[in-house]
Design a protein around this nucleic acid. Structure first.
Lengths: 214, 214
DNA sequence: CCTACCGATCGGTAGG
DNA sequence: CCTACCGATCGGTAGG
């Protein structure tokens, strides 16, 4: 019965990765050692190792697992996502809610991983760069769409808006992880609202509710 | 001649720490291994080890060395620092210039270290938290002073201003380290200017030059 | 400051 | 999936 064996293998692999993402959000991708992860899963080192073939493959699999969770929780699988100004507000508040849930003990997985990989060239770094860039582009695309539809002023710089919103989200994560500052999420929401409002044209502002973010 | 021996020891210790801060900004405080650092300095492991007594003492010494550089480069040793609105602008642009200098290969030492230590309770984490908090408080104090002197509007929240400016500085560092985006420093300067301008009272705005940050 | 060493743990392999 | 093992490296120590 090879089919059943396969599905069991897949299930075990998924269970391994759930634990591995959690460990990596705390210990980092280097601190995620095969021995420690095996012990945490009550498996032998080589038994776990056989699922991935190398530490780098394990790291890449962990990154994909974290990205999938991110897409589901924040991007809603790309499903019913609004575009433009509402999309920007939606993505931001989805991210903040996602972080407040505390799915990863170490906070935002990608924040924990970025500073770790930025000096280590290779496929792991490349994948993290790609995923981070696509998240920033999602924010920038929403801002660009808002400008094109006239919600945002013509002189709005979408990349600048994305830079600012991303800065606030990351700062909320940092402040919460390092200082345990729960108010950081509210500060970020307030700052994002200011940035969005500053770009919004008067006509659009008059037509929309003032308190959309959180 | 014990005096000369002492000063030589001090000089060597400083030379070790200069190298150690550089390594730690790239590899992190855990990745800063005694063996690797010894090899980089053409010393024996135990010879280097004798200067610190434990890895944790080495990590704490590295943090103090980085903090001292930060005080010298950004805070100007607390010397001729202006307060209020000008102080805020001065601290921000000093930080951006400091980062563009590229003194640490890994970018901002404290950014690299924060996400590493935030899940590891102990004296190393405590010291990083304390130094990070005092930097944020320097920004917040300047904003509070600006409000008290009437440069900033009465309803300004100094902690919110500090949150936003710190977010922009950190995002510039992140964007530069991960994406090699040199424009990030200009984006941060522009965003900081907006935040400061938004808090500034009309009378103060009319009396000051519009392009202070960078 | 050195050589020489300790036990523990790392990523990875052999063989089943 | 396991036991048993490899060479390399870790933080740290002994003794000089």
């Amino acid at each position: 019965m090879p089919r059943r064996t396969d599905s069991q293998t897949t299930l075990l692999r998924q269970a391994i990765l759930v634990r591995a993402v959690d460990v990596a959000s705390v210990e980092g991708l280097e601190g995620l050692t095969i021995g420690r992860l095996a012990t945490a899963l009550s498996m032998s080192k080589s038994g776990l190792f056989a699922h991935f073939g190398s530490k780098q493959e394990l790291q890449l699999a962990v990154i994909e697992a974290a990205a999938e969770t991110f897409r589901r929780e924040v991007m809603q699988d790309g499903g019913a996502l609004p575009g433009g100004r509402a999309g920007l507000v939606h993505l931001s508040s989805a991210w903040l809610r996602y972080m407040e849930k505390g799915l990863f003990r170490g906070g935002c997985f990608f924040a924990a991983v970025c500073s770790e990989v930025d000096d280590r060239p290779g496929p792991v770094r490349d994948r993290v760069v790609e995923l981070t860039r696509s998240w920033l582009e999602a924010l920038e695309d929403s801002a660009a769409q808002a400008r094109e539809s006239g919600e945002f002023a013509a002189e709005t710089d979408p990349a600048q808006v994305a830079f600012e919103i991303h800065a606030f989200l990351q700062e909320a994560n940092r402040s919460f992880q390092l200082h345990g500052d729960g108010a950081a999420f509210r500060r970020a929401a307030r700052a994002i609202r200011q940035t969005v409002d500053a770009a919004t044209t008067p006509a659009t502002a008059a037509a929309t509710l003032p308190d959309h973010v959180r």
